[in-house]
Amino acid sequence: MWLPSFSLEDKLAAITGATKGIGYAIAMAYAEAGADIIVIARTKDDVHQVVKEIEQLGRKAYPVVADVKDYQSIIDQIEALIPQEKSINILVNNAGMNIRSTALEVTEAEWETIVQTNMRSAFFLSQYAAKAMKDNQSGKIINISSVAGEVALRTGVVYGMTKSAIQQMTKNVALEWGPYNIHVNAIGPWYFPTSLTEELLKDESYVNDILRRTPMNRLGDVKELAGAAVFLASEASNYITGQTLFIDGGMTIYGF
């Protein structure tokens, strides 16, 4: 049989920022592909709503209410929730944020908030998941980066730095954990309508500038990220590690 398996049947996936935008799309796609989901986000009502939706698809879902900056709380809740015989097979480090300050204006407090949310949490949650994956000699870690990790944008220097760091972390841990059959890859989106971009996309001139830089001449739909996320979590990607897949309508190939 030449067609590889895209099934996530009976896998356990932990997804940060799983109640909105990209994280929500990935959570629902994974559930449809057969995975049980650890739903991680800050807002209790949102977490329990997504848990309910996943359970309606016939999969198990586990609520974890925490800010990713407090990654130890996430780990403690997972340890308390998950049956002893189960462990995380797939981790998606999706949660992220931005404060749009220029390099001349960014404060130390803004720096710390962006770095801890986008980078520090992703590393230590990956470290936690990889310990179990090493024991099982199997695992998939998917980091949500951004085109801002590859090219210079007006998104702010600290945000771009964290996304570049995510891509470099992806390469380094893929190298270190490859012998344990742990695959580590990243996805780099361009503009998708999410809570992070909602206000920006109300500006017609800003949207037109985005479209000018996008060969496909449109914004993305979060559902268009779901297939790539399932692919990278499934057996179909078993010989791929350390890569960043840009889902950007061709933006990163465009010569400005």
Score class of each variant (00 low, 15 high):
residue 195 S to Y: 09
residue 195 S to R: 08
residue 195 S to D: 15
residue 195 S to P: 03
residue 195 S to I: 06
residue 196 L to W: 12
residue 196 L to N: 12
residue 197 T to Q: 01
residue 197 T to I: 02
residue 197 T to C: 12
residue 197 T to H: 10
residue 197 T to D: 08
residue 197 T to W: 10
residue 197 T to S: 15
residue 198 E to A: 14
residue 198 E to Q: 15
residue 198 E to R: 10
residue 198 E to S: 13
residue 198 E to L: 07
residue 198 E to P: 10
residue 198 E to T: 10
residue 199 E to L: 14
residue 199 E to I: 02
residue 199 E to N: 14
residue 199 E to D: 15
residue 200 L to K: 12
residue 200 L to P: 05
residue 200 L to R: 13
residue 201 L to K: 02
residue 201 L to G: 02
residue 201 L to N: 04
residue 201 L to I: 04
residue 201 L to M: 12
residue 201 L to D: 11
residue 202 K to I: 07
residue 202 K to L: 13
residue 202 K to H: 09
residue 202 K to W: 10
residue 202 K to V: 01
residue 202 K to N: 11
residue 202 K to R: 14
residue 203 D to P: 09
residue 203 D to G: 04
residue 203 D to T: 00
residue 203 D to I: 06
residue 203 D to Q: 12
residue 203 D to R: 08
residue 203 D to C: 04
residue 204 E to P: 08
residue 204 E to S: 14
residue 204 E to G: 00
residue 204 E to D: 15
residue 205 S to I: 08
residue 205 S to D: 15
residue 205 S to M: 05
residue 205 S to G: 01
residue 205 S to N: 14
residue 205 S to A: 14
residue 206 Y to I: 00
residue 206 Y to P: 08
residue 206 Y to L: 09
residue 206 Y to R: 04
residue 207 V to P: 07
residue 207 V to R: 06
residue 207 V to F: 04
residue 207 V to N: 02
residue 208 N to Q: 15
residue 208 N to I: 01
residue 209 D to Y: 05
residue 209 D to P: 00
residue 209 D to K: 12
residue 209 D to N: 14
residue 209 D to G: 07
residue 209 D to A: 12
residue 210 I to C: 06
residue 210 I to V: 12
residue 210 I to N: 01
residue 210 I to P: 09
residue 210 I to Y: 03
residue 210 I to T: 01
residue 211 L to P: 11
residue 211 L to S: 03
residue 211 L to C: 07
residue 211 L to Q: 02
residue 212 R to K: 15
residue 212 R to F: 11
residue 212 R to T: 12
residue 212 R to Q: 13
residue 213 R to E: 09
residue 213 R to L: 06
residue 213 R to P: 00
residue 213 R to V: 03
residue 213 R to N: 09
residue 214 T to K: 03
residue 214 T to C: 00
residue 214 T to L: 05
residue 214 T to W: 06
residue 215 P to N: 11
residue 215 P to M: 03
residue 215 P to F: 07
residue 216 M to N: 08
residue 216 M to C: 04
residue 216 M to A: 14
residue 216 M to L: 15
residue 216 M to S: 12
residue 216 M to K: 10
residue 217 N to S: 13
residue 217 N to R: 15
residue 217 N to Q: 15
residue 218 R to V: 06
residue 218 R to G: 00
residue 219 L to D: 03
residue 219 L to T: 07
residue 220 G to M: 01
residue 220 G to L: 10
residue 220 G to P: 10
residue 220 G to E: 07
residue 220 G to T: 01
residue 220 G to H: 07
residue 221 D to Q: 14
residue 221 D to T: 05
residue 221 D to N: 15
residue 221 D to L: 03
residue 222 V to G: 04
residue 223 K to W: 00
residue 223 K to G: 11
residue 224 E to R: 01
residue 224 E to S: 06
residue 225 L to M: 13
residue 225 L to S: 08
residue 225 L to D: 04
residue 225 L to P: 13
residue 225 L to G: 11
residue 225 L to R: 08
residue 226 A to H: 08
residue 226 A to D: 05
residue 226 A to W: 04
residue 227 G to M: 02
residue 227 G to Y: 02
residue 227 G to A: 12
residue 227 G to Q: 08
residue 228 A to P: 14
residue 228 A to V: 15
residue 228 A to W: 11
residue 229 A to W: 13
residue 229 A to H: 12
residue 229 A to F: 03
residue 230 V to H: 11
residue 230 V to S: 07
residue 230 V to C: 09
residue 230 V to L: 09
residue 230 V to K: 13
residue 231 F to C: 10
residue 231 F to E: 13
residue 231 F to G: 03
residue 231 F to S: 10
residue 231 F to V: 04
